[in-house]
Design a protein around this nucleic acid. Structure first.
Lengths: 169, 169
DNA sequence: GAAAATATGTCAACATTGCTGACGTAATTG
DNA sequence: CAATTACGTCAGCAATGTTGACATATTTTC
């Protein structure tokens, strides 16, 4: 009676994917754990990592753009950004065109740490790929992208450099 | 001069997998975001979710076992567990054999919420699978498992019910 | 050029969820 | 009965998120 569908009502009665849910949880925990351990030696946390990462990936980023990526408040960002600047991992300069903007750049020290962190996490991906055959990387890419909110995918694709932001073209 | 390896030294000079690193970050954020919104309506956070989830999955779990899964301190656990019990989402009974143990069970209300949360997250997986072909689920499983620390995989496999804990066999 | 809007910084207070350390109590074990 | 085990609890601290209010510099607009 409930519904006309005998097999499964769009997934309301079907069994949850407990395995994937739990695997995603453990996989992500181990993934960030790699970075956590290195960050600790600098007195930094995950929040610092995220800021350092995106600044290193997009030198010249402004505060507003960074806030938009991280989706936190300026107060939260400022707390960690201040430390990163104080410890000379990041530099802020007045915007080239609009001097109200602050453009963020990693210093040599900051670039090094950002790269080391990325390489740590890359190592985990690389080890995972070894057990997954030659197409593992593409499949991981496709799976992860498919897990992102559909209306966020465009922005994410731009971020990771897979899409031209339609500038001059 | 740097090293003898011209192609790439085990991945020390190779380009980091920035795309996967960032995709994993955004995918996981959206994944937990689904649950966050529902939890908020109950005044619960992610910590409550994890406790409710594992108790619902393994009724009769003891405090020590739960601590071992979550890898947090008993004080952290107790804080959220106390609320879940107070609000009647979880029940704690003295252990059957050893009365020092507390065995945890979800109430009807707790089971319902746990299932709703799992279904929300399952929906995201299911939508992702639609774009990935028939083998998407297995590939996602394999990828996620491969991302887990190798020495943790056995435990995780048991948790998700893919491995007999070698009891009577 | 004065006024309004924009980009950012900062202060204060609070919530969630980790942590450590110390101590208490009930139940079991030796 | 003493020691161990399993758990609960109190107190305090840290990281990182939040709101709200207000200051300052710069650019835009009328």
């Amino acid at each position: 009676m409930k519904s006309a569908a005998p097999a499964q009502a769009s997934r309301d009665e079907a069994a949850p994917f407990y395995d994937l849910i739990e695997l995603f949880f453990f996989a992500y925990r181990d993934f960030v754990g790699d970075a956590d351990r290195l960050l600790e030696t600098y007195g930094f946390g995950r929040a610092h990592h995220r800021v350092l990462h995106f600044v290193s990936r997009q030198p010249g980023l402004t505060i507003a753009e960074l806030l938009d990526i991280l989706k936190i408040t300026k107060q939260s960002l400022n707390r960690v950004l201040k430390e990163l600047v104080a410890k000379s991992f990041i530099e802020a300069r007045a915007g080239a065109q609009d001097r109200r903007h602050r453009q963020l750049f990693t210093t040599a020290k900051g670039s090094r740490l950002a790269r080391d962190l990325a390489l740590l996490q890359t190592k985990r991906f690389a080890r995972a790929m070894e057990g997954l055959g030659p197409e593992g990387r593409e499949r991981a890419f496709d799976f992860l992208l498919a897990m992102v909110d559909p209306h966020e995918r465009g922005r994410v694709m731009e971020l990771i450099g897979m899409k031209n932001p339609e500038r001059g073209a």
